[in-house]
Amino acid sequence: MNVFRLTGDLSHLAAIIILLLKIWKTRSCAGISGKSQILFALVFTTRYLDLLTSFISLYNTCMKIIYVGCAYATVYLIYAKFRATYDGNHDTFRIEFLVVPVGGLAFLVNHDFSPLEILWTFSIYLESVAILPQLFMISKTGEAETITTHYLFCLGVYRALYLFNWIWRFYFEGFFDMIAIVAGVVQTILYCDFFYLYVTKVNAVQRFQ
């Protein structure tokens, strides 16, 4: 555990909670892509199956349970409790175009051809592109509420901090996981355009176009 890893995890947690609270407080999920949230729930489910097979630390176990729980709570709020406010007409990204190729890639490029390892690899690849339905929705409607942009910003910061974490671990621990690093770089790049808009527009005019 290093400072980049810890702040990355906390930034990730902040993003997840910001989104949950926003939906809960406004009683609305307008502008939020339910499809991205389904993908994140799938990412956490397939990645954290090792909760059942191995214990790493109390921190690790607690964070995994919180991430999975919040992901399903968010999906529940969007598709059940506040379904009437869900903007399905603008959430039109075809997620099978992500899930199917990512599933194929996880079968072909992995560290070990075993069910848990393939599911872990699938989750790593899927996480790198899971935000695309949300970014697609924003590009389609041409706007996002400020709080939604804070959510995306925290998610992007989390990814960037994980890159620094890997650089740290490479130098100080000799740790090097090519699958996680390549997927992490791809994921961070997807947020770069958004970062630029966030810094130049959101903080200036509080409205994001």
Binding site: S54, I56, N60, M63, H111, D112, E117, G174, F176
Partner: peptide
């Protein structure tokens, strides 16, 4: 490195 072993990252 710990390929295929315990994964401590989230």
């Amino acid at each position: 490195c710990s390929f295929g072993e315990e994964k401590d990252e989230l």
